[in-house]
Design a protein around this nucleic acid. Sequence first.
DNA 1: TATTGTTATACTCTATAACTATA
DNA 2: TATAGTTATAGAGTATAACAATA
Lengths: 155, 155
Amino acid sequence: MALDRDAKPAEAAQARVDGGELLSDIEFLLARARVRGSASANSALKPFGLRERHYAALSLARGSIAPTQRDLAEFLQLDPSQVVAVIDELQKLGLVERTPDARDRRVNIVTATPKGAALYTETRAAIAAARDELLADLSEAEQKTLADLLLRLAF
Amino acid sequence: MALDRDAKPAEAAQARVDGGELLSDIEFLLARARVRGSASANSALKPFGLRERHYAALSLARGSIAPTQRDLAEFLQLDPSQVVAVIDELQKLGLVERTPDARDRRVNIVTATPKGAALYTETRAAIAAARDELLADLSEAEQKTLADLLLRLAF
DNA sequence: TATTGTTATACTCTATAACTATA
DNA sequence: TATAGTTATAGAGTATAACAATA
C-alpha cells in the first residue's frame, strides 16, 4: 500500500500533484472549465435528445434574423458539412425548416418551427437550472464578470 | 446576389446572425474561448512536435512531486488509457521516464528527464508568447481576474 | 470561375470494456 | 477481490477534399 497515495480520487490528485504552473495557465483552465460547462449543458439537454450544437443552432434559428447554413457554420465555428448534419437532425425532429432563398437558390435559410421555438424555451430553462449548480461558487457579480471577459476573448 | 449577405466571413456572421442569447451563455462562451485557447497553445507547440496534453503532462512530471500515471489521469481529466499513449510518446522522445514504485510495483512514477525539463521551459515560453496575442484585448488585471475565476470554475 | 450545400473520408479525442500483473 | 497500467474498440468531434447546383 502506498503511504500518502490513498485518498479520494478528485481532491487527491490536486493534493498529490504539483499542478503549480498549470493552475495559472489560462489555456489549461479554459479547457477544463469548458469540459465542466459542456457536461452541464449536455446533461441538461439529454432528456430532450439534443446536444450543445443543436441547442446553439436552434437558438440562432429562432432569433430575429434567420441565418443561412453558412451563417451558422461561421458563428458556431462548425464546418459547413457539420452544419448539414445538425440541421438534418433538427429538421427530422420538426424543430427547424430549410427554406431556399428566393434571391439565391443555392442558399438555405434556417428557421425554427413553432415546435422548435417552444422546445428552445424549455431547453434554455433546463440549461440555466444546471448552470446554477455549475457556477454555485461564484457570486452573481463574478458570473457577470466572467461572461464579459469570456465574450471579449471568444470574439 | 444577396443584399446584406456579402461581407467578410468573420465579422459578417456576427453582424448577420442574431446571436443574442448565446452571447451571454457561459457554456457557449467557454466552448468558443477554449477553441481559441487550444489553437493558440497547439500552434505554439507544433514546432516542438507536442500538443496540449503532452505539454500538460510534462509540466506535472517536472514538478516537485513526481506523479503516477493515475495522478496524471485524474488531474488532466484523461482516461488512464489515454495517459498511456501520452507518456509513451513523451518517453519515445526522451522527455520523461517511467519508474516503477518500489513500494507498489504496479505503479509507474513519471519524471521528466533533464531534456524534458529543458524542453518544457522552451515550450512554456512559446505558449506564453502566443498567449500575449490571444489575450491582447484584456488588460493585465483582467487577465488575472479571468484566470482566478476560471480556476474556481475548473476545480 | 466562385460559392452553397452536400457527401465521403480520415484523423483526433473521448469513453468503455477486458486483460495482466501486482497487491 | 481490488487496483495500476495496458490493449482494443467504438463513438464523437473535427478537418479536408471533391462534387452538384447555382451564381
